[in-house]
Each structure stands twice: as structure tokens, then as C-alpha cells.
Amino acid sequence: MANPINTFLLTDLLKGLWTTFKNQKPSLVVTEQYPRERPPVMERYRGAPRLNTHPETAETLCISCNLCALACPEQLIVVTSERNPETRRKDLTNFTYDTSRCMFCGLCEDACPVDALELTQDFEMATFTREGQIWDRQMLEEGPLPTEYRH
């Protein structure tokens, strides 16, 4: 700026123009065309919840200990269970998880002693109704149906 020749020849402005001009290279484009290409999320991503089942027996891993419900700051997990008279263990009857209030902080996941509750990489959880946001045990175990887009 101090140099009057530079001031007169608008060097500072030309420098800026050159910078933006260089940015036109098509390989520099960073846009992700979202519904068409889904961005990969990282392995530890905290997204849609899932209630894990045993891979072979398809029985739930959850032992109905209620720790996740206690850990949750929003108190949005409700675990219902009944005591099995034979095994003297608690059997899971239902498990509701209100994704509309969840802030995906991961505290429930950390609290679960048997890694039954897990936050997965799925992030498409929009629904048309508020009720649809409340996931029950079946939804949690099977996962939401993958969204399909028509162009």
C-alpha cells in the first residue's frame, strides 16, 4: 500500500483477483452432492442407535440392567423387562428410544456393560411424524429402512 506505484496499478486488487481465478480449477471443487453420493462417516460416528443381537441366535444382548436409561441426560430411554422365573434373569420386553430428543452424546453407549446399545454410522433419521421418531425394540434391532432417493 505504501508504494504509490502499487497503489496506482491496483496490485493489491489484482493479487486478490488472481487468487480467486486460480480457484477455478475443477479439481478443487469440494462440493459433495449429498443424496447422490452419501458422504462416508467415520468409524466412531455417533448416529442412529442400534440394539445389538447375538449374531447366531438372534437373541438380544441386552440384559435389561437399565444403566443406559440412568446415564442418559435427557432420560429418553425406557427399558421394560420382566423377570423370567426359570433363569431368574430379567428378560427384555420392550425398549423405546426417543431419537427426537437424543443429542447423540454417547453416554448411554458408554454406560452399557455388554455393548448391547450402540450408536451406528447411520445418520438419516428423518420421519414424517413425531411418533416415527420414537424407536421401539424392533426398530432398534433391525435398524431403520435405508432411505432411497429418486431423482
Binding site: T20, F21, N23, Q24, L28, V29, V30, T31, Q33
Partner: peptide, 10 residues
């Protein structure tokens, strides 16, 4: 969009 490393309307 080109100047700003974007794609613009697509």
C-alpha cells in the same frame, strides 16, 4: 461457484 470451489446449481 467456480471461484468459490463449489459447484453451483446442479
Amino acid at each position: 461457484a467456480d471461484l468459490q470451489v463449489r459447484l453451483g446449481p446442479m
